[in-house]
């Protein structure tokens, strides 16, 4: 190799490397990349308590870096002798959608683009035909004459189709009846979204955006900790609240008292009374054989 060809090749190579670096520059803007700790994290059910503590610390650190606020992240396990059931009184629901937004605030859903776990369907009286249901209704005041309202969220099925289709076991049913998602294990294939007959699952197409002042700092690993782009999420009966003995956020905000929640295995619970004494009319789409733990009932 002579001096001339060395210089020429060198110049071409140098500019080649520079050009490659320039063309890869968008990578510099990449935020929220998967950390090595997250990459090497074990499956949720295989984590020892010490490893879990480490994972929770990591998540707290990540949230603090992103939002500037230190959250309290817990890993709450199902309680013994508890099976959760939700009952919703269709006679009382006035369709005000407060539950939708209380859920968003409690569970740190993305505000833009919008992710909501609860959809309130409006039906004309005398029909339960999904084709006639409407969830974009926007009158000046509710309830409207001639309509009734039916909020739909994850039904926490006893026989959940979403769990069956997950190729990586990132979603499963716990013994208190809640179907949970490990956001660190989800690969974002959206099979579960397609399998769910209730359209209860939501996908993060973009990096979720939550204003820091609206962030709920009481978090749970399987519950409301902030999600990443590319993972599924859905209603989990507010595990961060209900597994600590509290009522879900949607129930507490309901102005009409239409929402009832509790342990169906306790014969003195509100839900046990409702299932025993009230006119409980359906499990939604019961012909699907999913056997929801979410019941709709009437007063009369």
């Amino acid at each position: 190799m002579n001096r001339r060809s060395f210089l020429r090749t060198g110049a071409v190579l140098a500019s080649g490397v520079a050009a490659l670096a320039a063309s890869l520059s968008p990578l510099r803007e990449l935020k929220n990349y998967t950390s090595l700790e997250q990459w090497t994290q074990k499956y949720y059910k295989e984590l020892t308590p010490a490893e879990m503590a480490k994972v929770l610390k990591r998540i707290e650190g990540e949230v603090e870096r992103q939002y500037g606020l230190r959250p309290h992240v817990r890993d709450l396990k199902p309680m013994d002798g508890v099976e959760f059931v939700y009952c919703l009184n269709l006679t009382r629901c006035i369709g005000c959608r407060k539950c939708v937004h209380a859920c968003v605030a409690e569970n740190n859903q993305s505000r833009t683009p919008e992710i909501q776990y609860i959809r309130v369907l409006r039906f004309p009286h005398g029909s339960l035909d999904m084709e006639k249901a409407e969830h974009f209704y926007s009158p000046d005041s509710v309830p409207e004459k001639g309509y009734f309202y039916m909020p739909v969220q994850c039904q926490q099925c006893k026989n959940p189709p979403c769990v069956k289709v997950c190729p990586v076991h990132a979603t499963w049913q716990e013994k208190d009846g809640i179907t949970v998602i490990d956001y660190d294990w989800c690969i974002g294939c959206r099979y579960c979204e397609a399998a769910c007959p209730y359209w209860a699952r939501r996908f993060n197409f973009t990096q979720p955006s939550i204003p820091a002042e609206r962030l709920n700092l009481d978090m749970a690993y399987l519950g409301n900790r902030p999600r990443r782009q590319g993972v599924m999420e859905k209603c989990h009966f507010c595990v961060q609240r209900t597994r600590a003995g509290r009522y879900p956020a949607c129930l507490e905000v309901c102005p009409a008292g239409a929402r009832k929640f509790g342990n169906v295995l306790d014969p003195n619970s509100e839900v046990a009374y409702i299932l025993k004494n009230k006119r409980v009319f359906i499990q939604l789409k019961e012909e699907m054989g999913t056997s929801p733990r979410f019941f709709y009932y009437f007063d009369v």
Binding site: R97, E114, S138
Partner: peptide, 9 residues
Amino acid sequence: PRPPAPGPH
């Protein structure tokens, strides 16, 4: 009757 919260966007 009361005003409803905003619907889905």
